[in-house]
Design a protein around this nucleic acid. Structure first.
Lengths: 212, 212
DNA sequence: TAGATTGTTAATCGATTAACAATC
DNA sequence: TAGATTGTTAATCGATTAACAATC
């Protein structure tokens, strides 16, 4: 159970391993070497072996890795052998898009969506009830929630985060373009779309810019 | 115009500088030292000075940085002193969310949305026409497009990417959970939401796991 | 001027890559 | 067995941090 000391660089590569292994399983591949995996996934064979060996010895000398076994290991390492209860705060376009994304298939169950718009409260989004954000604290005290997704306007994001924190949330998936102020031990994963798009803009100009 | 040799680590910090400087300008702050900026943005003062000096000497010894000047520099370095023409392929929930996000205010003009659903073609999303994806190539040949956003089902993502590439696109903002096969010089920025959510799952279990 | 803070070089730290003995 | 490939240590590379002379 000692997952400590794994660097974020490694952790952020795990979903990509998961994705490619899942694909290989579907294609019926049952054996792969770090060298072969390297060629399709784009990490070096050395890095792949280093990454896996952070968590155990999953391979076999002279053979490589069994795709099914390796997939199951990675799946379990990420924590996808259990389910997670999720709520979304903000029933706008982004909240709706996420509710419909299909994360349920991976074990992320969306229990409720919250909003402050009377026209939305009481309705459903992707089969999930939209509740009044006023009862957020009550709801949290009655349901164990693993992950709260914030898709509200940026102006209220910190306020919502504060209320979630007081209600005992342990992880927030933040889609608003602001870094939330939060205690050290809170897990905050930001999806800063503006930052991502700005990176595209930078790279576009870089590639247009005159050489050296 | 020599933007070469700037590492991605630096590039990905630029939007955050932009964001915090914009905020400071709004608050009327007109002067800031790397040490003060460090405290609010969370990068070390040393790193901040290193980052800026990749692009020029924007500060003044004994004084610090002028917030307005620095903001304008960063804004221009990212390339936000011009506009970008954007199309979205996929008029689903995510496409709609992005069309409504407000990127226009930053200079990203959404010219058209494409879909293959007859019920959507001809309608609008956030004031933008939805066109038949069949005319994608024709449209691209008649309009200079800087950025194509892919929000289609994952199954057709590579096919759409191929068509965009043939039509001369130089950058793709990819929201599907697959890594696109593309030429070296194409800019592909992935927003892998599943990967991001899996990271949350991992960190959740890590923090629950028994200690050392 | 004296104090403050930059710009920049040098030192450190961490992550990636290379190499190879172990072994299937 | 011989060939292949892992697990793991050592070497390299790159990014971050520390230090300080330059200078406003």
């Amino acid at each position: 159970m000692t997952k400590r000391d794994i660097s974020m660089a490694v952790i952020r590569r795990l979903p990509k391993y998961h994705r490619y292994l899942s694909e290989m399983m579907e294609r019926g591949v049952d054996r792969i070497s770090s060298k072969e995996l390297s060629e399709i996934i784009g990490f070096s064979a050395s890095q792949i072996r280093q990454d896996f060996n952070n968590f155990g010895e999953f391979g076999q000398q002279g053979y490589g890795y069994n795709v099914n076994d390796l997939y199951r290991e990675i799946n379990s390492i990420i924590g996808l052998d259990r389910t997670y209860s999720v709520i979304i705060i903000g029933a706008g376009n982004m909240g709706g898009a996420l509710a419909n994304y299909g994360f349920q298939a991976l074990g992320f169950e969306i229990l409720s969506i919250f909003d402050n718009d009377p026209k939305k409260i009481g309705k459903q989004l992707c089969g999930v009830d939209i509740r009044d954000v006023n009862i957020l604290e009550t709801y949290m005290s009655q349901n164990k929630i693993d992950i709260a997704v914030i898709t509200t306007p940026v102006t209220v994001a910190q306020d919502i985060a504060d209320r979630l924190i007081i209600s005992g949330i342990t992880s927030i998936w933040n889609f608003t373009p602001r870094d939330l102020v939060a205690p050290e031990d809170l897990i905050v994963e930001n999806v800063h779309l503006v930052d991502s798009l700005m990176t595209v803009a930078y790279l576009l100009n870089e590639s247009n810019g005159s050489v050296s």
